[in-house]
Design a protein around this nucleic acid. Structure first.
Length: 276
DNA sequence: GCGACAG
DNA sequence: ATCTTGTCGC
């Protein structure tokens, strides 16, 4: 079933680091040991990942049979960091009305993060705050609770096929889409290669499937706005297909970064300035 | 050995 | 992620 025959580069590197470790220092709980736990967590959660459309709503553009819930509330999450103290962060959740692209809900939380950013393990740093914001909203049975969540970070487009968007999607049991502003090099996919493919592409849609050396499709690159040659990188997070993910991202792009994520970014940065 | 590495 | 002003253009 799984075409992810990609060997874990990170896993190899970690083992290498452990072999070279000189001091099995007490419980400084630095990297190697904890990262091996994280690898197991990612592998485990990945077993619950759903990579096709799995929701009861439909897109407003798809005028099919009526009497079906329509996608209206799209959420977005992001974190901003203090320039002074990089361990201080503000996590923000916004919900937009898909038709008007106006924010109908906003909540944020300022926290002190203990976990550093390690490529391939972003979720262990950022997911807890964001999941808490979602949980808080769900417990209040808020009527604006998102039917879909856009995440600032990748989904399948990840060394082990399980980025932040997948992580949040599975743990919150919510359809999610990952949007990266920079390419995480995986399976032979590089910036230069994407650039040349994007130019050579006949695609009238300004989208390009990201197919790696293995033949696996990790996501898509999209030139989302006229003014920017620099693409965004879309990958499915959970309970959605890549095709549907692309369609929804396109619907929410007023500028390069889709509005739900852009608003979460703007507002989290703003709150950090005025509050601490 | 060297480079690459989401936010 | 963050450090940073103006500037060119619709």
């Amino acid at each position: 079933m799984s075409h992810l025959v990609h060997t874990s580069q990170d896993g190899c590197r970690i083992v290498e680091i452990m072999n070279n470790a000189k001091e099995p220092s007490s419980s400084e709980c630095n990297c190697p040991t904890e990262q091996m736990d994280w690898l197991r967590v990612q592998d485990s959660l990945k077993g619950q990942l759903i990579t096709e459309d799995d929701f009861k709503w439909r897109l407003p553009t798809r005028e099919k049979e009526g009497s079906c819930e329509i996608l209206k509330y799209v959420g977005g999450v992001d974190l901003s960091f203090s320039k002074d103290d990089s361990s201080i962060a503000c996590g923000t959740l916004v919900v937009l009305d898909l038709q008007t692209l106006k924010v109908v809900y906003e909540d944020s939380s300022i926290v002190r993060l203990q976990i550093p950013y390690i490529p391939g393990f972003l979720a262990f740093r950022e997911a807890p705050v964001l999941l808490e914001l979602l949980d808080k909203m769900k417990n209040n049975a808020h009527c604006f609770y998102p039917q879909l969540l856009m995440v600032d970070g990748n989904g399948l487009l990840h060394p082990r096929g399980f980025g932040l968007a997948c992580h949040i999607g599975v743990l919150a049991d919510l359809p999610t889409v990952g949007v990266g502003k920079n390419l995480h090099h995986v399976d032979g996919l590089t910036q230069s290669r994407v650039r040349e493919l994007l130019q050579a592409a006949d695609s009238p849609e300004n989208v390009l499937p990201l197919i790696g050396d293995s033949g696996y499709t990790w996501g898509a690159a999209m030139q989302s706005s006229q003014g920017s040659l620099k693409p965004i990188f879309i990958s499915l997070g959970h309970r959605i297909s890549l095709t549907t993910a692309i369609e929804i991202v396109r619907m929410t792009c007023r500028f390069r970064v889709p509005e739900p994520i852009r608003q979460a970014d703007i507002r989290s940065r703003e709150r950090l300035r005025n509050n601490q």
